[in-house]
Structure formats: C-alpha cells, structure tokens
C-alpha cells in the first residue's frame, strides 16, 4: 500500500492504494468517481479517458501510484446535472449519447480537444474522437454535439429540429 495524493476535480484527495491498481479503479472504487468507465482495459476504447495534468490519458493504462502529485479531472469535474459544461450540454441537445457508457470518455476527450482546437471542422472532430469507441450512436450525433459545443450552440450545428 502506498499513500498517494492527487488533486481530483479541484479537491485534494489522499488515498492508500495497492501499487498494482489502475488509476481508473482507484477513481471508481476508492474515490467513488464512477463516471469514469472501463470498457476494454487495454487502451483501445477510450471510455476511461481522464485528464491528468491537463493531458487526456487512458486511466486503464496508468497506475494510480503514477498519478501521485498530479491534478486529475474526470467527467464529474467538468460539470454537474445543474451546471453542465458546453460539451455536456451539446451531447444532451444533439442526442450524442444513447447508453451513455462511452460518453464520459468522449466528453473528456472532446473537452480537451476543443481547448486545443476551438473551431474544428467535422473531419477534425471525427479524427480527434477516433480513439473513443461508441457502439450505439453511429457517431454522427456526437460530432454534432462537439461542433455545437464549439460554437456554443448555434452556427455550425445542424438546424434545430
């Protein structure tokens, strides 16, 4: 057991972890942040994406002990049901999710992407999200959601229904 301290979603958290536990499991099981999902546990599906020190990482490919001293942002830290972030709002408005299991990873990835590229094209969005597998939506509404968030709701998104 090793004691680690992280700043998670703006709060200092100290927790004892086994050295071989993945960051994803520590977030989920020790810190109760179950918004981060495990879809494949081999770094392909992207459901477990979180931000560590501002970079998007797969939390299934990082040991929790490696996150000691870092700043971690999970989907819970981006907004809450009453104060959704533009990306979260975009997903809701554009029906960018169905079962919602891949959604937290996509929202984290998209949020980071829009910070780097605030005015992307559709294809740029598609490429930026290509490391996140969604099995339900067919991606089109997700792309709409990200573009809507990029434009904060108006111009590039498809016409309102």
């Amino acid at each position: 057991m090793t004691e680690i301290s992280m700043r998670v979603n703006g709060e200092n958290r100290t927790v004892n972890v086994e050295d071989y536990w993945l960051l994803a499991d520590v977030l989920r099981e020790k810190l109760g942040l179950t918004g981060t999902h495990l879809g494949c546990e081999h770094g392909v599906c992207g459901a477990c994406s979180v931000m560590v020190d501002g970079e998007v990482v797969r939390s299934c490919l990082m040991l929790a002990v490696q996150a000691d001293g870092t700043e971690v942002t999970t989907v819970e830290g981006l907004g809450d049901p009453d104060h959704m972030s533009p990306v979260q709002e975009g997903f809701m408005q554009e029906h960018g999710l169905q079962c919602g299991f891949c959604t937290p990873g996509l929202i984290v990835t998209a949020t980071h992407f829009l910070k780097e590229n605030p005015h992307p094209t559709r294809q740029e969005v598609r490429e930026a999200l290509s490391g996140n597998i969604c099995r339900c939506t067919g991606y089109q509404h997700i792309v709409n959601a990200v573009l809507r968030a990029a434009d904060e709701g108006e111009k590039k998104a498809p016409s309102p229904r």
Binding site: G43, G46, S49, E55, V57, L61, F113, A128, G131
Partner: peptide, 9 residues
C-alpha cells in the same frame, strides 16, 4: 502514433 491519449503518455 495511436491517438492523442496514447501520444500524451
């Protein structure tokens, strides 16, 4: 190389 999340680490 992979995706940004892979390249970041």
């Amino acid at each position: 190389i992979g995706h940004e999340a892979i390249r970041a680490r």
